Simulated scan of single mutants.
Amino acid sequence: MRIRPFAALSVVAVSTLLLAGCSGSADPNATPTPTSTASSECLLDAQPGADSDAIEVTGSGADLAATLPDTLAFEDVERTIVTEGSGDDVVSGDLVSGFYTLYDGSTGEVLQDSSDTSADDSGAVPIIMDPQQYSLFVAALECAPVGSTVAMSIPGSAFGEGASPVVIVAETTDFIPTSADGAEQDPVDGMPTVELDDDGAPTITVPAEEPPTEVQIAELKKGDGPVVESGDTVFVQYTGVKWSDGSVFDSSWDRGQPTAFQTTGVVAGFQQALEGQTVGSQVLVVIPPEFGYGASEGHELQDETLVFVVDILGVQRAAAQQ
């Protein structure tokens, strides 16, 4: 059965084991492999060992694959940088494009590869280095230069009692811009106004008038990337303010990194604003309570009309369940 690693592998147990300061026990007799210099921003900086060195990695991009020997012991978390890229190191909070293949370490079965969820023919996907959601990928890719290919072995104990060990091979290709880069569009009369700072973070000014009763959507920038479909995972920056007083109630910009979620996991008005848009677009949406938190009794935003500016940075399709 195929699984979605973002949902099934990036669990608290993984974060606890992989990102709590433990380190792989490198085999001093193993073949030397390139390693990145650890920095203060590294959460794990897993080291190479006999298992990760023994994983035979072939191909690159959409053809990235590995052969798993049947001698893997899976006693510890190990990572080998198979080829070292020439870009800046990838650290927590970054958004990158890349490729990966996940294997069941016990059987060698492919659990999922990036081509399963890529939004285009390239096979590449956005990968966000968020230890709270995607700790598996943080552990595999952190503190290695962009352009690197890595092999990582993880014992089954990371995923719970009786779980199978996992092998991941992954390659990063580039950093993804953290603000929308689409073509600027003409403003829409009557909508809130938006000013961007040098980094692209928006300041939203709400009109001094009654809020609308229907969802209103305007494109501030039009990207030329893949179209967001229902159920996709979108990688975004956003800021939300209340129409009532213009105050910010939520912002990925304030947290210092983009975020990701499924379009079907947000309020109806936000979902309307995302689906059908293209990657690289910046969208302004006004959401009345009926299409926001109006039905959430006791929610602090239950009676509020909400205004969001959303930069759509990347998208990933839902993996087929088999």
Rank of each mutant, 00 (worst) to 15 (best):
V125H: 08
V279A: 01
E56N: 15
D104F: 01
G147S: 03
S281L: 05
F137G: 01
S36V: 09
T233Q: 13
D311I: 07
G200E: 02
V188W: 01
T205N: 12
A318H: 03
F291N: 14
P258L: 06
T33M: 15
D116H: 13
P212C: 06
R2A: 08
E78Y: 05
Y103E: 05
L136P: 08
S10F: 07
T16H: 11
G49A: 05
V90Y: 05
L72E: 02
I176A: 01
S157W: 06
D76W: 00
T71I: 04
V169F: 04
V279D: 04
K222N: 06
L141M: 13
E214N: 14
E290W: 07
F159H: 04
D53C: 12
D197K: 08
I176V: 15
I204D: 09
A144E: 12
P5V: 05
G256P: 13
I127A: 01
G280H: 11
A26F: 09
S106P: 04
A8I: 07
V234T: 13
S10V: 11
S52F: 02
S25L: 07
V234S: 03
S296R: 10
I168W: 03
G162V: 07
S296N: 13
V267T: 14
T264C: 02
P69H: 03
L111A: 05
G280S: 06
S252T: 15
V315G: 01
L64D: 03
E297M: 11
T233S: 10
D89W: 09
T278H: 15
A62T: 12
P192Y: 03
L196C: 00
V307R: 09
P258S: 06
A144I: 07
V150T: 12
G276D: 04
S122H: 02
A320D: 10
W243G: 00
M1S: 09
D198N: 10
G59Y: 10
R4Y: 07
E209F: 01
L284W: 01
V167M: 03
Y103L: 08
